[in-house]
């Protein structure tokens, strides 16, 4: 029952890349509740992207369990894929196409009808300030505009859970502000946000609960305010350095 209330439920997960002797995760457990704004942080190489790839089914796990809204990923891939949206760090669209054409195509792949697609294209391009350039090829866009297209495609099908891997990297303050505000609006409507970034000030603004990962282990997992109090830190950056140290990791 608890699993049904969790947006993500990871139990006893072990995973290692083929050909590598060391496992990235062993017996990992993590629960993210529905409607949460959850941040996953850690130094480079800590396993954040690997964990997101496991939660989105891009990587297959060997032992343990990963459930999204109660569905075991490896057994219900098609159902699970309807539940979440993914904003990868890289631009994940066709640069030759316009925003409207990209949204039209990915909307069809997300299982939307023609009418739903048309409605969502108009709505999202308006919200994200792309209406005027809706028919221009994306390769002519600035980095900020491309980030907004990347986000728009991911929320076309109104997912229950939205995974965000560095969604604002390389954008100006205005675009970052617009994206974070839009993400908060989505969360207010019930979308669970699972976010990872090195922009710790932005993370403080967005995340309610966080997990810190280091060397494949969760070294802290609680509400941000509790962790700051517990470790007597004024901000996420101080907490991060206290728990993970100051040495280079990559």
């Amino acid at each position: 029952m608890e699993q049904m209330n969790a947006a993500v439920s990871i139990e006893d997960l072990s995973f290692g890349y083929k050909g590598q002797p060391r496992k990235n995760f062993t017996h990992l457990n993590l629960q993210i509740k529905k409607g949460d704004r959850f941040g996953i942080f850690g130094p480079n190489g800590a396993g954040k992207t690997t964990l997101i790839n496991l939660m989105t089914g891009l990587l297959n796990y060997e032992t343990g369990s990963v459930r999204l809204s109660g569905y075991e990923i490896k057994n219900h891939k098609k159902n699970v894929n309807r539940l979440f949206g993914f904003v990868p760090q890289d631009f994940s669209f066709y640069h030759e196409l316009s925003p409207a054409e990209n949204l039209g195509f990915f909307g069809a792949w997300a299982g939307l009808t023609k009418q739903q697609i048309q409605h969502k294209i108009t709505e999202l391009l308006e919200i994200l300030g792309l209406q005027e350039v809706r028919n221009k090829p994306v390769h002519k866009f600035s980095g900020g505009m491309k980030r907004r297209v990347n986000l728009a495609i991911s929320v076309m099908h109104e997912p229950e859970i939205l995974f965000l891997d560095e969604p604002t990297v390389g954008v100006d303050v205005q675009t970052r502000h617009a994206i974070i505000n839009y993400l908060k609006q989505l969360n207010d409507k019930g979308t669970t946000l699972i976010y990872t970034s090195h922009q710790l000030h932005e993370a403080e603004d967005l995340c309610e609960n966080i997990a810190l990962i280091d060397e494949g282990r969760i070294i802290a997992n609680n509400s941000l305010s509790s962790l700051l109090n517990e470790h007597r830190q004024g901000g996420l950056e101080g907490l991060f350095l206290t728990l993970t140290g100051k040495e280079y990791r990559d």
Binding site: R82, D90, A110, G111, S154
Partner: peptide, 17 residues
Amino acid sequence: LSGSFIRLRTLPTSFMV
């Protein structure tokens, strides 16, 4: 190699399409 492929893999449609 592009990011679009990663997105396609996370959508509920077979790559056979």
